[in-house]
Amino acid sequence: MADPFDPAHYVPEAAAAVGLTIAPADLGDVTQAFAVLARVAAQLMAIPLPEETVAAAVFIPDDGAGR
């Protein structure tokens, strides 16, 4: 089975699935850019975090005072 994060395999499949058209001339650059993300993501996902470490983004309910 192919590695799902083999960029050359994943990029055209995922693009088609979400409705993105990648021009043939761009496919190499997009694959390369995605490979960079995949490489750093692999290192990131290897960092073990306890479940109680919550996301840094904090949701503040909007009371309508802003625009």
């Binding site: 693009a15 979400v18 993105l20 997009v30 995605f34 960092i47 975090l49 996301a55 840094a56 983004a57």
Partner: peptide
Amino acid sequence: LAGALAPGVWYAHAQRVR
């Protein structure tokens, strides 16, 4: 275009790493 294809778990984990 590459960013549009990133799996959600990467993003959520990045926020927790932060």
